[in-house]
Amino acid sequence: MQGKVIVVTGASSGIGYKTALQAQENGATVVFTSRNAETDEKIKQSLKGESIVKNLDVSNESSVKELFKHLKERFNSIDALVNCAGFVEPESLLNTSLENWNKTIEVNLTGTFLCTKHATLLMKNEGGKIINIASTAGLTPRPGWSAYAAAKSGVINFSSAIAEELQDYGIKVFVICPGRTATPLRKILAPNEDPSSIMQPEAVADVVMMCFTKQAEVLEGQPILVRERF
């Protein structure tokens, strides 16, 4: 990963933050992004080498366009995008408001689409990798999490579709489906759960790093389940 430019969304916490740190430790120039990344002291103190931090609202196309315009001017191209940004506010079907539904879809699914589209515009001449973080919630029943499950299911099928579509550009697409992981989003989904009793975000970041190897290409375009059995 030495010298590669990698964009990580949702890089302020959880899987996104641990992924960004690991990529940086492996020699990549990392673009740490989240809604308030530029004022996040933890991120700023974590920067090494040529890595930078940028604010990004993945659900806002103007914000996404602005980010990738800046990256084109600064780096000319990028080598990879890791879509980690997420949102969840679990409610039963009858209690889920349209506002909740729309925001869940906009951040988790539309945000993945927007960032993928504009990253592809930078990568299509030289190839690259796109790694989308979905969830096992997109594969199995999640009563009470219908909006989140729908969004993550969409990420999985979106990833499969573009894996075929982007072959001509030399862009490899991976979709990772973590199980229970000790992240801020998981705390919202299961507030009474002991975070030390479940998988840690570093474990998922390890799998993201694996996707940068040649050997991982046999896993392209299909859900990669990452979960511990307890």
Rank of each mutant, 00 (worst) to 15 (best):
E89P: 05
P90E: 02
P90L: 03
P90M: 01
S92N: 14
L93N: 09
L93S: 10
N95D: 12
T96H: 08
T96G: 05
T96V: 11
S97C: 07
E99R: 13
W101D: 02
W101F: 05
N102A: 07
N102E: 11
K103I: 05
T104H: 02
I105G: 01
I105T: 00
E106P: 03
N108H: 01
N108E: 03
L109N: 04
L109A: 05
T110G: 07
F113N: 09
L114F: 04
L114E: 06
L114T: 04
C115Y: 03
C115L: 07
T116E: 06
T116V: 08
K117W: 03
H118L: 11
H118P: 00
A119T: 08
T120D: 04
T120P: 04
T120Y: 06
T120V: 13
L121A: 13
M123R: 05
N125T: 11
N125M: 10
E126K: 13
G127T: 05
G127Y: 05
G127M: 07
G127N: 06
G128P: 06
K129W: 04
K129E: 08
K129D: 06
I130V: 08
I131W: 02
N132R: 01
N132P: 06
I133K: 01
I133E: 01
S135V: 00
S135F: 00
G138F: 02
G138Y: 04
G138L: 01
T140E: 15
T140F: 14
P141H: 11
P143Y: 10
W145I: 01
W145D: 10
W145C: 08
S146N: 09
S146C: 10
A150K: 05
G154D: 08
G154C: 09
V155T: 00
N157Y: 09
N157Q: 15
N157T: 15
F158N: 04
S160D: 10
A161G: 15
A161E: 14
A163S: 14
E164C: 11
L166A: 05
L166M: 11
L166D: 04
D168E: 14
Y169M: 08
G170N: 12
K172W: 08
V173D: 04
F174K: 07
